[in-house]
């Protein structure tokens, strides 16, 4: 049996968990290719006009998997229990969006439901998938455990690696505050990371900090922000703000949670130059190069002015 996984949305956060899980169940996994023009265009055609860019790209990836696998893996993730641990409603809707969009195209879904408030946690959701996959209880449990372990190892090493970069990198360090699926997508975040490096700056990814610690620090900036990912990003800003030279808020148009969460950051994090980047499907990253360039110029200018002032004292 071949499981297809769209390389979009939660894949960028959970790829290690998902791939390891399926591999240990002896299932073949195909992941759709990196986002390219064709995927983007097809996603735009399949999706409702007003849907956020990230979810349009997702549908493009799903379509590219049709005919190439037996089941497309589309989990539903609502929340992880507590009240400030919810996800954007997009992730609650995803299986039904996909099945309604592609219902005449022979799509078969492998879905699972993570809804902590309805006492469906990740483990039970993964265990339930064994029925559709024809796997034994123990084997499934074991695969999940191994997958969890692999996920933890990967996250820890990414976080450590980034901490090192944060300490050691020369030149400007800029914290990229955005959802993993936007930062790591070839169309959305790809060009931005690329330009930054070309301009000699070091991107620090807010999503790559120690997530638990970040989450616990979010409360320093907000009391009622409900979304887990945005809370992590908010906490990551607290973690890194002393060590970076500027913030880049990266969002996909028209992202619901970011529309509010970024505004809180803009208003409550003072003293750090901040650039607000909104990527939409028409423009993509076009024009962003010049904005990044002048952002970096401004930071350099301000820092030079500050050093000069300190020297004259």
């Amino acid at each position: 049996m071949i499981i297809g996984i769209p390389r979009a949305l939660l894949y960028h956060r959970y790829h290690c968990l998902w791939e390891t899980f399926f591999e240990h169940l002896n299932l073949q996994v195909v992941v759709s290719r990196e986002t390219d023009k064709a995927i983007l265009e097809r996603g735009g055609v399949c999706a409702i006009d007003e849907a956020c860019l990230s979810s349009k790209i997702y549908l493009g990836h799903v379509e590219s998997l049709l005919g190439r696998c037996d089941l497309v893996f589309v989990p539903r993730v609502s929340n992880f229990g507590q009240r400030d641990n919810i996800l954007c409603t997009k992730f609650e809707a995803l299986p039904d969006i996909v099945s309604n969009t592609f219902r005449h195209r022979g799509i078969k879904l492998l879905d699972c439901n993570i809804d902590g408030r309805q006492s469906e946690n990740e483990l039970s959701a993964f265990m339930l998938m064994r029925k559709k996959l024809g796997k034994k209880r123990f084997q499934t449990f074991y695969a999940y455990m191994l997958a969890k372990q692999a996920e933890k190892l990967e996250q820890d090493s990414l976080a450590r690696e980034q901490e090192r970069r944060l300490e050691e990198a020369e030149g400007l360090k800029l914290l990229i505050v955005g959802h993993s699926y936007n930062v790591y997508d070839k169309f959305i975040g790809g060009p931005i990371l690329h330009y930054l490096k070309a301009l000699g700056a070091t991107p620090i990814i807010a999503d790559r900090v120690d997530r638990k610690r970040a989450l616990s620090r979010a409360a320093e900036l907000t009391s009622t922000m409900p979304w887990l990912f945005n809370r992590e990003l908010t906490g990551a800003v607290q973690e890194c703000r002393e060590k970076v030279d500027g913030l880049i808020l990266l969002s996909a148009f028209p992202c619901g949670p970011d529309s509010l969460a970024n505004e809180i950051l803009l208003r409550r994090v003072s003293g750090l130059p901040t650039l607000n980047l909104l990527v939409d499907s028409q423009e993509g990253a076009a024009g962003i190069e010049t904005r990044l360039e002048s952002f970096i110029d401004i930071i350099g200018f301000r820092q030079a002015a500050k050093t000069a002032k300190e020297a004259s004292l």
Partner: peptide
Amino acid sequence: SFGCTPETDAMPVLQNISADYKIPILYFS
């Protein structure tokens, strides 16, 4: 309202209902 995520996500379903029951739907945002 424009960009309302849950209602945007209900639209693919509405489109299918519209097709299945041959009932026109007018969408306002």
